[in-house]
Design a protein around this nucleic acid. Structure first.
Length: 472
RNA sequence: GUCCCCAUCGUCUAGUCGGCCUAGGACACAGCCCUUUCAAGGCUGCAACAGGGGUUCGAAUCCCCUUGGGGACGCCA
């Protein structure tokens, strides 16, 4: 039997990291077993579902590369099917119309809470035969078995036993006839022949109800795997209104999708001491049975570390491609300076995100406005003027502008003036990029280019002379 | 309140049939080394089995209780 998993988000917001991880696990599980990954949009709540949310979720999945094999299926397009199954249940006396008013339900609930009981429907209409012609439009409730146990053999949590006496007759169709969540999931998982249901563990409590409905329908029960929640850095559950950021937000912040994926897969799952996983390795090594049973906290620092790792090790053209997007957001035109791949090579070891890389590489395309004050006053000093002038003359003579050639010239100049390399490299750095931090000075000069380097040196000398005569 | 789940360094985790654990790795943090800046890299350090009972020759690993987190209890999904 081929493995079939599904990711079933409800389009009431963007795709956040918790959902993304659940999707990743489902996808991985399907891929590992050569199975099928289905995407299903659970939009039966028409009040809150929006097309924008659907797009946001699809966009997030695409960015992460979690491609689905079937779907997306929309539950709102399957209402006929749900109606038919509800009718079938009604015909077989496995469901019934309930005419209880919301007021009655509410007072029942209040009463139960007062008696320290779990609030649940008391089965008032379960055996009624009449259909009152009153004003209350009926809902349809499922006849849950009154006793016995339901056992869930969860792939992650292990064996979990629920007593039917804890369950009540849940509503499967609202008074307007529309089906509810616990019912549509069951019908869909059955129709779509889902073999492995992988979802957040907030659904563990729904599972016995769903199994009961599945049984009533004579359908086989799939395997279940309930993955723990992701908590925020404060230990609180991550939710849309509490710290959960959109998956796409990570792209905006300059993370590579592979870094996020790697971070997510290690959140709750591990393979010995291994920290870095390529997509292929994840597929090969991932095992749903090895997923942690407890919740995990989201740690941005570690994500940042992985981000840096991928920036450091990924193909230069790949990074350049994604970097250009962030450069664009800074209104930097990458065609006005050094080749992007060279900038990537120079900066990849000193950027944790692409946004950071874009910011520090901007200077190679549009120059800089003014010197960093502290750095200028520390390095652009009169005593270095002679060496700088000499250096400029020597650099002007360089015919092949390579890091090696540049390095040799700088070293020679330093030697000629009895200076250590750093003594001349720092002033040069400030002259050329405006501050005392940049990649190795020879590499930096290749990025800046010979012409602009010489110009920068002119300005630096002018600056130093002015400073010399100016008031201190 | 009732039911369900969970519990190893600050964080992610290793620890699979109890002994190889004076509990390992990674992130973060601190120090040192390297060094033309910043990084990167190397080395070292800091730091945990929630508590209490059992079972056993022996428990982080099994059982129970307590405590602490989380979840569910909707005509939301």
């Amino acid at each position: 039997m081929t493995v079939r998993t599904r990711f079933a988000p409800s389009p009431t917001g963007y795709l956040h990291v918790g959902g993304a991880r659940t999707a990743l696990f489902s996808w991985l599980h399907a891929r590992k077993h050569g199975g099928v990954f289905v995407l299903r949009v659970e939009d039966t709540d028409r009040e809150r579902s929006t097309a924008e949310s659907v797009n946001a979720i699809l966009e997030g999945m695409t960015w992460l590369g979690l491609e689905y094999d079937e779907g997306p299926f929309y539950q709102t397009e399957r209402f006929d099917r749900y109606r038919a199954v509800i009718q079938q249940l009604l015909d077989e006396d496995k469901a019934y119309h309930c005419y209880c008013s919301k007021e009655r339900l509410n007072s029942l609930r209040v009463e139960q809470l007062k008696n320290k009981q779990k609030p649940r429907y008391d089965g008032h209409c379960r055996d009624r035969r009449d259909s009152p012609s009153g004003s209350v439009a009926p809902v349809v409730r499922f006849k849950n078995p009154p006793d016995g146990n339901v056992v869930v053999n969860d792939l992650i949590k292990g064996r979990v036993v629920f007593s039917n006496t804890e369950l009540d007759d849940l509503i499967i169709a609202r008074s307007d006839g529309s089906p509810t969540y616990n019912f549509t999931v069951v019908v869909d998982d059955m129709d779509m022949e889902i073999t492995d249901v992988i979802r957040g563990d907030d659904h563990l409590n729904n599972t016995p109800r769903q199994i009961n409905i599945l049984n009533a329908l004579g359908a086989a029960t799939p395997a279940y795997a309930h993955v723990p929640m992701i908590l925020g850095a404060d230990g609180q559950r991550l939710s849309k209104r509490h710290g959960a950021v959109s998956t796409m937000q990570f792209r905006e912040e300059g993370f590579l999708a592979e870094a996020l994926l790697n971070y997510l897969v290690r959140l709750g799952w591990s393979h010995g001491d291994q920290e870095v996983f390529s997509i292929d390795e994840m597929i090969k090594l991932f095992d749903i049975n090895n997923v942690q049973r407890s919740a995990a906290s989201f740690d941005r620092e570690k994500l940042l570390w992985l981000s840096q790792h991928y920036i450091k090790t990924s193909d230069r053209a790949h990074i350049a491609h994604h970097l250009s997007r962030h450069l664009g957001q800074l209104n930097v035109d990458p065609t006005t300076g050094p080749a992007l791949v060279d900038v990537v090579d120079a900066l990849r070891e000193r950027a944790k995100t692409l946004v950071e890389m874009a910011q520090t590489s901007a200077v190679y395309y549009r120059g800089f406005k003014g010197y960093d004050e502290k750095d200028a006053s520390k390095f652009l000093k009169p005593e270095i003027l002679g060496a700088l002038t000499d250096l400029q003359e020597r650099l002007a003579l360089v015919s092949d502008w390579t890091a090696e050639a540049i390095h040799q010239v700088i070293q020679e100049t330093a030697d000629a003036h009895g200076l250590k390399l750093g003594k001349i490299a720092q002033p040069l750095r400030v002259a050329v990029v405006g501050r005392a931090v940049s990649p190795p000075i020879d590499v930096t000069l290749t990025l800046v280019g010979q012409e602009r380097t010489l110009e920068a040196l002119d300005k630096a000398q002018i600056y130093i002379r002015q400073r010399e005569v100016g008031p201190t």
